[in-house]
């Protein structure tokens, strides 16, 4: 039997299934929490940190990733306080500085209100969101991909030898990779990276007026917002 708990998100009392994450609950009730590494139905690992929220307990608030935070009875969550918006903007800025060659990440940066990038562009091909790794492990059950190394050397790789020994050719890793779609202007070469920002106009006035509400913005399609995937 399903058990339910009562949670307050942004002041709205909602009822959530026990065992779901705060992010899933918020998306279900139409509260917009930007996210990147979350895929519905796949275990979360809290890699991108975009979905941070404030968890208020005993008058103190703690900032955590909402995708790995499970709902509890009487929880109080705030998703768009000034503090959170500032931190989220900074995280999005770091992501776009690391990998500007992705429509999904450029869209997220616009969605989180990034207007300039203060960090040097790295132009890397991976943001270590772990979507491919988890799809490979949980949906394809192939275990062909994983994180190798640690710290600066951490990267996604397959065991030595031929990839084809493990890969089931499901293409899930490519489908769910945020780097597989380049920005609208085509791939950026080294030295000419920039913040795209063209899709700013697609953020309708509604989205700005009601920052915490999901208005099904067009930008969600770019990074495969789980609202779109769930439909």
């Amino acid at each position: 039997m399903l058990q339910y708990v009562n949670v307050t998100i942004d002041g709205a009392p909602v009822r959530a299934e026990k065992g779901t994450s705060v992010l899933d609950t918020a998306i279900h009730y139409g509260i917009c929490i930007p996210h990147l590494c979350h895929i519905p139905g796949i275990h979360d690992m809290g890699a991108c940190r975009l979905c941070i929220v404030e968890h208020v307990r005993n008058g103190r608030s703690k900032v955590t990733a909402s995708c790995t935070l499970l709902v509890e009875e009487g929880m109080v969550i705030r998703t768009n306080t000034d503090r959170i918006l500032k931190m989220r903007k900074n995280i999005a800025e770091l992501l776009v500085a690391r990998a500007p060659n992705s429509k999904a990440i450029q869209d997220i940066a616009v969605r989180c209100g990034v207007t300039e990038v203060r960090y040097p562009f790295r132009n890397e091909n991976c943001v270590l969101c772990g979507r491919c790794v988890r799809i490979c492990k949980e949906r394809a059950q192939a275990n062909a991909l994983g994180f190798i190394g640690r710290g600066k050397e951490r990267h996604v790789d397959h065991p030595p030898g031929k990839l084809m020994d493990y890969c089931k050719n499901c293409n899930g890793c490519i489908l769910f990779c945020p780097m597989s779609v380049t920005p609208c202007g085509g791939p950026m070469k080294k030295g000419e990276e920039r913040l795209c920002g063209k899709c700013d106009s697609q953020l309708t006035a509604d989205a700005r007026k009601m920052p915490g509400v999901c208005v099904w913005c067009e930008l969600g399609k770019g990074f495969q917002c789980s609202r779109y995937l769930a439909v």
Binding site: A144, F147, I148, G149, R150, Y166
Partner: peptide, 25 residues
């Protein structure tokens, strides 16, 4: 050795990629 890691992965029931992840870490 690579061969030994494959045997370890099979005998312990751990995916080979996880064995490599730990060995690299």
């Amino acid at each position: 050795p690579e061969e030994a890691l494959k045997t370890v992965s099979k005998e312990l029931g751990v995916p080979l990629i996880d064995v490599y992840r730990v060995a690299h870490f």
